[in-house]
């Protein structure tokens, strides 16, 4: 046990390489397989899948690698409510990357959604109703 301390070198002599070495959890490939499976299911049965990326152990740099692999598709939307959210279709149609930020622009949640369109992009009935009333009162005022 004690030689553990004896063999320690001074901190400034340690050759630190950021991101060096294979720090692969091996979780990226199974995750991509799950996405593929979810796409098949979406086409066959219409069933949507949402994966919470924060629930999966990813090593340093792996999250970026996953995003790189998924790539960028044709659509990118930004929602402004409680901070911003980016909703981006990846290079694989039907696979969306949804990232929620708070007002300080810190990530509150990151999800891969396998769907025709993420729920949060659709106009919501509660908001439509509220807008309808606003439009009504605007019209009343102008007539």
């Amino acid at each position: 046990m004690s030689d553990l301390y004896v063999t320690m070198t001074r901190p400034d002599s340690i050759d630190i390489r950021v991101g060096a070495g294979p720090r692969d959890t091996g979780n990226v490939a199974p995750l991509l397989n799950e996405v593929r499976h979810a796409l098949v299911q979406l086409l066959d049965t219409g069933k949507e899948t949402i994966i919470d990326l924060r629930s999966i152990p990813l090593g340093p740099g792996e999250s970026e690698r996953l995003e790189e692999t998924l790539g960028e598709g044709e659509i990118e939307a930004v929602l402004h409510s409680l901070g911003r959210s980016t909703i981006r279709e990846t290079a694989y149609p039907g696979v969306w990357l949804v990232t929620h930020y708070n007002e300080e622009d810190e990530i509150m949640g990151k999800f891969v959604e396998v769907t025709h369109i993420p729920q949060i992009l659709k106009s919501q009935n509660e908001d439509i109703n509220e807008g309808l009333q606003r439009l009504g009162s605007t019209l009343e005022q102008t007539h």
Binding site: R54, S81, G109, E126
Partner: peptide, 23 residues
């Protein structure tokens, strides 16, 4: 003044925070 979309976002972040599945 938080819209339904904002509320849904809040719920998604809460689910993630509570370690519950997005479903």
């Amino acid at each position: 003044g938080i819209s339904r979309r904002g509320f849904l976002k809040f719920c998604a972040a809460t689910a993630s925070m509570m370690a519950l599945p997005p479903a």
